[in-house]
Design a protein around this nucleic acid. Structure first.
Length: 218
DNA sequence: AGCACGATTAACT
DNA sequence: GTTAATCGTGCTC
């Protein structure tokens, strides 16, 4: 069964920055069997807004030509661009814009909404070797980061390239009321200190003001 | 064929 | 504030 509120391709077929802002307040859902886990998107980042090269974007590698890793980003909008980083973390993006352009939006944080016990279990550290009961991870830290939310929602590389607009896809974005414009904040993207200016400082990270699940530090 | 490093996180001083 | 964990990718030799 597919919810009628699954966002259609037209939503994603727009410039990355517009989609990144409009994704705030929407719901990211992953169905595994009969279980559903999901959260309200509270933080995003736009990459490769197509006007000119964005050196912070993976698609700018290989002189801006597609590679095995980035090919999905050059494809049609509404598909998942998921990649593995630091040897241990999966990051979830949605392809935006139109085919031929390499645009994407990174989902950096969500607020837990459904199946919270399931998310907590997925995020709970395994007891390392010695039999010491791991202290429960606070709810505030379940999904407040790009790699934390993929772990909590069990999203990984198997969904790389998946069409989120396909009624059969177990991952989708559910429509929800938009966040008022005066509640949206913008600032530089996180974790790209090695990227040259001006791209390093472009304010293409968006979040909901004062939301407790926005990723820490930055 | 080899290598430096990353759209991060958690644990540590 | 600092650093280890951990490995696929893109770039250099």
């Amino acid at each position: 069964m597919t919810p009628a509120s699954r966002l259609p391709r037209a939503f994603f077929a727009r410039p990355a920055r517009a989609v990144a802002v409009d994704l705030l307040g929407k719901r990211l859902v992953h169905r595994t069997g009969v279980q559903r886990a999901g959260g309200i998107i509270v933080e995003t980042e736009a990459y490769c807004d197509a006007v000119e090269p964005d050196l912070a974007c993976h698609a700018s590698k290989n002189r801006g030509r597609p590679t095995g890793r980035t090919a999905v980003m050059f494809g049609p909008p509404g598909h998942a661009y998921i990649y593995f980083t630091y040897g241990m973390h999966w990051l979830f993006n949605i392809v935006t814009g139109r085919a031929g352009q390499a645009n994407a939006v990174l989902v950096r944080a969500v607020a837990p909404l459904e199946a919270e016990d399931l998310m907590a279990a997925r995020r709970q550290r395994r007891a390392a070797g010695t039999a010491q009961p791991p202290s429960p991870l606070p709810r505030s830290q379940w999904t407040n980061g790009p790699a934390k939310l993929t772990e909590a929602l069990a999203i990984d590389g198997r969904y790389h390239g998946a069409d989120l607009c396909d009624p059969g896809c177990p991952i989708w974005i559910e429509d929800a009321p938009p966040v008022p414009g005066d509640r949206v904040r913008a600032g530089p993207r996180v974790g790209i200190a090695g990227v040259p200016e001006p791209w390093r400082s472009m304010p293409w990270r968006y979040w909901i003001a004062d939301d407790p699940f926005v990723s820490p530090h930055p």
